[in-house]
């Protein structure tokens, strides 16, 4: 009858100091968080944006230099490498995770005995730190002791797998490790979506004579649109922020071959004493994430509003 937004408004005009305190209490409770977020998130964002227009080097300085940092940023080969890597990494990471995730979810949805064992196995990497993941894959992909060596021991002596040492191919090693960590999670998202589909629709499709394959292609997968969208947003967000994994796996090398915007920002700000450029790269990263997240959050909030 009443809208949720209004449902819980307490009596507004209670009298007396105690009652007034009661009325202000909710705001007082929320105030510290609000202040913290205003300062530590939005204030800091503004500060970093400001720094990106200054001549800051090893420490923040406040001489304005206009767009000079951005101009320098876009002339730096390393930044272009970082962007190119992000494009390769992001596209493959999202693409492969979605394919594996959907594939596994559909397989698991075939009334599998032992689903309760398999599902946690697919998902546990998500509980690990990227540093741990990076360490494991770093040595497993290492030609000296890892996979290549294993193959040689098993008699395939001509096997070569030196991607992690190869400036052209090292970024694909990052993709391998990252997919390993996240694809189980994408599987869980799709599985939740599959389990949420109305049984009667599927029964109707069966009666209409659709094969299992047709049911998935024509009816089930189109209904997973929200899961696709969520997976894309989460993975894109993770890809743009990726830092730990690269540090642990390749430390952005060999050379700067696996540089990503996050490692670029860190090294220019804290190691190369170009804080202005670092700040500018952080601003670009923020804009990249915002372009993915803001429409999504906006749609979610709007969608939630319509449901009421």
């Amino acid at each position: 009858m009443s809208t949720i937004a209004q449902a819980s408004v307490p009596p507004a005009r209670a009298s007396g100091a105690r009652a007034r305190l009661q009325n202000w209490l909710p705001r007082l409770v929320l105030a510290p968080s609000f202040a913290a977020i205003l300062v530590f998130v939005y204030g800091f964002i503004l500060f970093t944006v400001y720094l990106s227009f200054t001549d800051s080097t090893i420490l923040p300085r406040y001489g304005l230099v206009g767009w000079a940092n951005y101009e320098r940023l876009w002339r730096l080969p390393n930044w272009w490498i970082a962007l190119e890597n992000l494009a390769i990494f992001g596209a493959l990471y999202i693409g492969i995770c979605v394919v594996i995730g959907l594939f596994l979810a559909i397989l698991l949805d075939q009334k599998i005995r032992g689903e309760g064992v398999l599902r946690p196995i697919y998902l546990y990497p998500m509980a690990l730190s990227f540093i741990v993941t990076g360490t494991a894959w770093k040595w497993f992909l290492d030609p000296g002791i890892g996979l290549e060596q294993v193959m040689h021991h098993w008699g395939w002596t001509s096997f070569h797998f030196t991607w992690i040492k190869d400036t052209e191919m090292a970024i694909y090693c990052v993709v391998i490790a990252a997919v390993w960590q996240s694809s189980g999670f994408v599987m869980a998202m799709f599985l939740a979506g599959l389990r949420g589909i109305d049984n009667e629709i599927l029964r109707a499709a069966q009666i209409d004579g659709a094969s299992t394959f047709q049911i998935y292609r024509r009816i089930v997968i189109p209904q997973l649109r929200p899961a696709f969208l969520s997976a894309f947003v989460v993975l894109a967000h993770l890809a743009i922020k990726s830092y730990d994994l690269v540090v642990a796996l390749t430390n952005a090398g060999p050379g700067r071959a696996t540089e990503l915007p996050a490692t670029f920002m860190y090294s220019y700000t804290f190691a190369r004493n170009s804080m202005g450029v670092g700040a500018a790269s952080a601003v670009i990263m923020l804009m990249m994430i915002a372009s993915v997240i803001v429409p999504y959050v906006y749609a979610e909030i709007r969608g939630g509003g319509n449901e009421r």
Binding site: M1, S2, Q6, V9, P11, A12, R13
Partner: peptide, 16 residues
Amino acid sequence: GCGKSTLLNTIAGLEP
């Protein structure tokens, strides 16, 4: 949607 529950809530003091 006629307002009957809202009326009851105002009598209860749950809505100003």
